[in-house]
Design a protein around this nucleic acid. Structure first.
Lengths: 263, 263
DNA sequence: TCGGAAAGTTCCAAATAATGAAACTTCATT
DNA sequence: AATGAAGTTTCATTATTTGGAACTTTCCGA
């Protein structure tokens, strides 16, 4: 029972430290040099060096000899396949997303919570279906997205408070909620309404309606959203899609709770 | 310099052991109980228990309290997104896969090698595009798939010999090559031909033509294949698609070697 | 081409974390 | 209640990790 509530940073044992390094490499979004990592890490040179060696020899990182850079390794892709299939709502929700996509014709996101952030696990585009990993696996902020707010709103009070405090508020647009107070009030309104809206809070011109996916016990399993641009739609227009949205969310819960792994 | 050539299993340090446990959980393909893992592991109970605790608290595993089972965690999905984008050929190859898909109208796979196995990193279906993680991240055998043989054939001799010995041959069909000798001969033929064929070696009724993706220095970067069923096509029919296939492979190399991460 | 500095790698005694046998707690059955 | 299988905790022992410093290589400018 060794909880570190301090700043997102966990670190039990050697494994924790190694994974923290993994995260840093992944967060860069491009190949990184040893020195770059060293600069932002508080490990001594030798320690960081050996952590990177271990991760590389394990296939968790790929080392490019020519450029002397590290990048996340392909072993992760293999592991993630299993994670996506087993631990995400995506495989169960797929047919319902397909149906909803056909019905409403707008962009749809399926998201879950991971470590206080929004993790997108599936998507349908208005025209072309799915865009692979380029969307699944992407993360987003909790306080200024429809799915983020929908999930935060229905978290148990303690977790919700914790999650609200973990947000690092940034005014992406003039409509972004930028204080814990404003967000807390908004979340109460969302609980009352049952759905959340993104009123151009994350990107100008982009609006969305989102619904939480709640287990029958009331636990937040994820969230589902329909996104549109202000050029082609309005908040009222999205409000009209609410029944389709919440019905889909309900079907997903039902499917998830019925689902049993075969022997 | 502590190499373990023995059976795919590496294990440097604690991190290695933890990741080996991760692999075992992922390999099951369904939630696993502690006892199941204990039975197939050679760690003592307490050790395995703590490894699982660490991985769980790190978000690498998800623990289902109700069922008392472990499954790969969502943190992996996040990390894999970065890996797929940065370390796989998929993002670079995408436009070329799209074009090839449109041109030939058959199923297309893009694969890379990971730890002696074939790792699929992208796919196009005949009709509907892409199927998310359910295909990307999947692994397959090297000795009886078109992409596997294409990559094995062009590996440096030492690596090739090692990889051939790592295969665990199983006669999926009557056409499967089931000995290292037969495979080695086939690989020589593939080197001479420049492309490989799957002659119903993995699944009855499924054939394919595959080409390696070789860097200008001759290093194996991945492989590309066009798959068809014997009902709708023949090996000769696939042979006719060879120019389109190899041209696409060349375009991908070119794009990959030109590609530079922006500052 | 040469010097110098920065980047990357190795060493080893000290510090720390992992180990695992055994004892203990649960919880579902008989 | 009694049994036992599954899961959890303890703690002295053991093995791994640590990090300062020395060493080697690479890069760059004069």
């Amino acid at each position: 029972m060794n909880r570190q509530t301090t700043q997102g940073g966990h670190a039990d044992g050697t494994v924790g430290k190694a994974l923290e390094v993994m995260d840093r490499v992944a967060a860069r979004g491009r190949p990184v040099r040893f020195a770059e990592l060293l600069a932002e890490s508080d490990h001594p040179k030798a320690t960081l060096y050996r952590l990177l060696q271990t991760l590389t020899s394990q296939g968790m990182l790929a080392y490019d000899e020519a450029r002397q850079t590290y990048a996340p390794g392909l072993r992760l892709v293999r592991l993630a396949h299993a994670a996506w299939q087993q631990s995400s709502l995506a495989p169960i929700a797929r047919p319902y997303l397909d149906a909803l996509s056909e019905q409403v014709g707008e962009t749809i996101h399926l998201a879950q919570m991971d470590q206080g952030q929004v993790l997108y696990v599936d998507k349908r585009n208005a025209r072309r279906p799915v865009e692979m990993f380029s969307e699944a696996g992407k993360i987003g902020p909790g306080y200024c997205t429809g799915v983020g707010k929908a999930m935060l709103a229905f978290l148990p009070p303690d977790d919700r408070a914790k999650a609200v405090n973990m947000q690092s508020f940034f005014a992406h647009t003039a409509h972004t909620l930028t204080t814990p107070q404003a967000l807390t009030e908004e979340l109460a309104a969302i609980r009352a309404a049952g759905v959340s809206f993104d009123r151009e809070e994350h990107e100008p011109g982009i609006i969305c309606i989102a619904a939480p996916i709640l287990s029958s016990a009331g636990r937040v399993m994820g969230a589902l959203s329909i996104t549109a641009s202000t050029q082609r739609n309005t908040l009222d227009g999205l409000e009209r899609l609410r029944p389709a949205l919440t019905e889909t969310a309900e079907k997903i819960v039902e499917a998830a709770e019925t689902w049993q792994f075969p022997d």
